Simulated assay, not measured.
Amino acid sequence: MDCRWDVGSDSCGYFQIKYNYWVDCGRPGGRWKSCAKNYYCASKCVQKYMNRYINARGCKRDCQSYARLHNGGPGGCLKDSTLRYWRKITQKGCF
């Protein structure tokens, strides 16, 4: 899983993790791109990120909040800009 340019910065690996996302999840694996491209490390990063922000700003513990938080950062579950991403996720079976 390579990196791709997305909304002003690179997104890398299995979950398209950006540098600041990796910092917020505690910098696991020592290097951002290496972690993002390693499934185990990237999975741990996403889990830590979700645990850190899921209750912030009224985000519920549900599929929609997790998806929108992942896409829009802290408070992403409340941002209109993440609704398009959420609609894509619902097509994959997350409700």
Rank of each mutant, 00 (worst) to 15 (best):
S11E: 13
N20I: 07
G30R: 06
Y53Q: 01
L69T: 13
A67N: 08
V46A: 10
Y14I: 02
C63P: 00
A56V: 11
D80A: 15
C12Y: 01
R52V: 01
G76C: 11
C94N: 00
R61Y: 09
R84F: 10
R68Q: 14
K60I: 02
V23P: 12
K44N: 14
S81P: 10
G76N: 09
R4Q: 13
Y14N: 02
V46T: 01
Q91W: 08
P28C: 05
A56Y: 15
K60L: 12
G26C: 09
N55P: 10
I89E: 00
D62V: 01
W32H: 14
N55G: 13
M50R: 09
K33I: 03
D24I: 03
A36C: 11
Y40Q: 11
C12H: 06
C12Q: 07
C25S: 07
R31P: 07
G76I: 04
K37P: 07
P74A: 11
K88M: 13
R31E: 15
H70M: 05
S34L: 06
K18T: 14
R27V: 02
C94K: 02
G26T: 03
R31V: 12
M50S: 08
S9M: 11
G73K: 06
N38T: 10
Y19W: 14
R52M: 06
C25G: 07
W5I: 05
R68M: 14
D2W: 08
R57A: 13
N55K: 13
S9I: 00
N51M: 09
V7M: 11
Y66F: 14
N51S: 12
D80Y: 14
G13H: 01
W22T: 04
Q91L: 14
G13T: 00
C12S: 09
A36E: 05
T90F: 10
G75T: 02
G13D: 01
I54M: 10
N38D: 15
M50P: 00
C41L: 06
D10Q: 15
I89F: 07
S11T: 13
C94E: 00
Y14R: 06
N71C: 08
Q64F: 00
K37W: 00
V7A: 13
F15S: 05
Y21K: 07
G75W: 03
S34K: 09
C3F: 01
W22V: 04
L69C: 08
R4S: 13
C12R: 08
D80P: 15
Y66W: 12
G75H: 04
L83N: 15
M50Y: 03
C59Y: 06
C77W: 04
Y85S: 10
S65A: 13
Y53K: 05
C3L: 04
F15N: 06
K37C: 03
D10S: 14
I54L: 12
C25V: 03
